[in-house]
Design a binder for these strands. Sequence first.
DNA 1: ATGATTTGACCTGC
DNA 2: GCAGGTCAAATCAT
Length: 382
Amino acid sequence: MEESLKCEQVGLIDELILGKELAKKLCDHLLPSSSSTSSSHETNEVLIEKIISTYEKAIAMLNCKANVGESKAKNGSKRDSHCSLTNGSPRSEVMEPEFEHKNVSKKRGEKVHGLISDFNLGFFEMMEFRKTMPRWTEQVKLCLGTAEGSLEDGYSWRKYGQKDILGAKFPRGYYRCTYRNIQGCLATKQLQKSDEDPMMYEITYIGRHTCTQVNHLNKAVVPPSKTKMCIGENKHQTHQKNQPQEEKIEQPPETIFSFGSPALEVKVEGLDHMEDIFPSFCFSSPSIGSENEDNNNIFSYTMIENNLMESFISPPTSESNMFCHWGSTGLGQSVHSSPSDITDIVSTSTSVTTSPIMDLDFLLDKIDFDIGFPINTTELCT
DNA sequence: ATGATTTGACCTGC
DNA sequence: GCAGGTCAAATCAT
């Protein structure tokens, strides 16, 4: 049993490595600076197909493993026998032909979800996954004249519920990633208005985004740093008037971020590791890169899959390629965006750049698990 | 017509 | 049994 698991794991790793190699090859073909600028279209197509096939195999392996494991693990549960490739919804039932339809809630069993997630986790894996999802809380203060919509964090959320919470004046809003069904992204957040200060919101994020949303790179909420971050030109006026900056700086592990607009102030709590939020985009600066290097190697498989596939398959809609340009040597590489660039980027969060394809250096760096964020946070904060 | 939000009902864990 | 979290039909907005 253990051996077969090992085999699967090795096979999975092999597939992923293969994908990486193929992506590199493709990069060589596509990069203008590469030796072979005369890229053969056919060859590129073949490489792309191979890459896709590689990741499909890897997914299949994961599915196989998941389906085998879950049926054993959850035999006692009311919801057993529902191991299928669902979109992750606990109440979604997409049955494989060989599975009996049992114990389906009268109401909710009626509607069978047609969408099968690319994420392809089995039902019970999903449940377990949710339990272990990273979870952190931010406190966001809105200033006067700022619409609630300004709480947006660069990700696209869809509200799926609202609930009165015991002891809270205001109901709690439940949001999930808009791309949940399309890309299987399980990220959710809960928005709770503070009792004391209606302008203060507590946002609880649950789970990482595995979807490909480019907006968040422009508006990213939480660039990891152990110190306060100020992005933008208003870095000295972005805090609550009655709260000195120094006081906040000395409050690790809570992290406070302010943005170009004075409208928002963000505190982050409950984070053990910054990579919990940005598994693929650890905002390490060259100056702090070394100490965070280990953490930066953490990379979500689904992020690889989603981003990579999206890059090759989807039409180029990237808004932030200039923001994501890594040097090919990886971690802590040269910053293509100067602090002033970043100011521009943040302040024009809705602008769209016209870079035709996702930067391949960027892609490769991700594949190399050497992810660094091109912001020198310490410079910005001084 | 399509997608997002609202809201009452349902499910689960404590 | 209760509270929190989620679903999904109904409704609203574009």
